[in-house]
Structure formats: C-alpha cells, structure tokens
Simulated assay, not measured.
Amino acid sequence: MKYYYLEPEVSGGFGDNIIIDPSVHPPLISRLHFEFDGWLGDSMVASFPCFLVTEDVKAVILKGSFSGVTFDDVEVTTSELFDEMQPDQKLPPFVWLKANGDAGRDDFGIAEDLRLVVSERVLDALKPFGISNALIEPFEGS
C-alpha cells in the first residue's frame, strides 16, 4: 500500500481554553480549544500538533476500520477576524483526530519529522469530503 504525507489547511490556532504542556516537543495537549481565523471548506484542518475532521469524516473513518486513529472532543470557536471576513459562514461540527499509529504501517501515523502520514485508503476516503487545500506528498519512510 502507498502512504502519503498529509498537511491539512491551517485555519486557525489554539484558543484560550486549551490545556497544553509546552515543556516537551511536540507539546502535550490534554484539552483542545481550536479557534478558526478562516475556513476554506476542507473537511480536515490542523494546527500543530493537532488535527480536526468533520463529524461526517469521523463516521467514515470509524466505518472503514482505519488503524492508528482515535477521536476526542474539541471546543471550536471563531475569532474576530473570522467573524469579519466570513460573517455568513457556518462551520460544521468538528472532532479532534488523534493519529497514534506507525507511519507507513497503520492508516494514520506521525512520521519522525512530526508530519501526518496516511494510507492511500485514507486519502480515497477523505477526498469526497474535501481536502483540496491540503498538501499531499508521497511518504518514502518505512
């Protein structure tokens, strides 16, 4: 099977209600608050080291029995910039996707350079939901 680096759209960053331990790298996050500054419509977004997917993508991932992934709750808010630039934009429900598999073996994993690696099966499942703003490159690691 082929594997790919998947670098999703960065639509914002951490909100005030995050619980984070920045003393380690990557930082450990026990409660995620994501604040959108804008949104181009992709079903997966990121702010290092976290990934969010829409609820409908979560359902597809669970139905497909993909390996190396779990989900958690996320608090989602919008910034003043978002409200000014996209006042009529409604965000779909998002969840926190936690990639915890082995890159190049599981469907979801984190490479040594801390980038997300996904299987071709994952890409095929995500594309119908929209990942057109993501950077996708072949993963050559083992």
Score class of each variant (00 low, 15 high):
E35F: 07
Y5H: 02
P92W: 00
G13Y: 04
P87A: 01
F139L: 04
E55I: 03
F66H: 12
E7T: 05
E140R: 09
A99C: 05
T77F: 15
E120K: 07
P93E: 05
S11W: 05
E112H: 14
S142E: 14
G15C: 07
P22W: 04
F14T: 00
S47D: 13
V60W: 15
E7Q: 12
L28V: 11
P138W: 04
R105L: 11
D113H: 09
Q86Y: 10
D106V: 02
V118N: 08
D113F: 09
E7I: 08
P27L: 01
E120R: 12
D106G: 07
I131N: 04
G68K: 08
D42L: 02
S11Y: 07
S67T: 10
V69W: 15
M85T: 11
Y4T: 01
D83C: 15
D107K: 10
E55V: 05
S67M: 08
Q86K: 01
P87L: 02
S11T: 08
F129R: 03
D88G: 06
D21Y: 10
P87T: 00
L81P: 15
D56H: 10
L6W: 09
F94H: 10
D16H: 13
S30Q: 09
S30A: 06
G104K: 04
V122I: 12
E75M: 15
D113W: 09
P92D: 02
G15V: 00
F51G: 03
G104P: 14
G101Q: 06
V69L: 14
F66C: 12
V122Q: 09
G15Y: 06
L6T: 04
Y3K: 13
L81Y: 15
L81I: 09
F139T: 00
R115D: 07
F139H: 01
R115K: 13
V53G: 00
L97P: 01
F129G: 03
S119C: 09
D42A: 03
L62G: 10
E137D: 14
D73A: 07
N100I: 06
V95F: 02
Y3L: 10
V74H: 06
D88K: 09
P49R: 05
S43E: 05
D37W: 13
V122R: 07
V118T: 07
A103H: 05
L135F: 15
R115T: 01
F129E: 08
D106M: 06
L32I: 08
E75D: 15
I136W: 13
F94L: 11
A99K: 01
P8S: 00
H33E: 12
S11Q: 08
G141V: 03
P49K: 03
W96Y: 12
G41H: 00
I19S: 15
A125L: 11
E35R: 08
G64V: 04
E140C: 11
S142K: 12
L116M: 11
F66T: 03
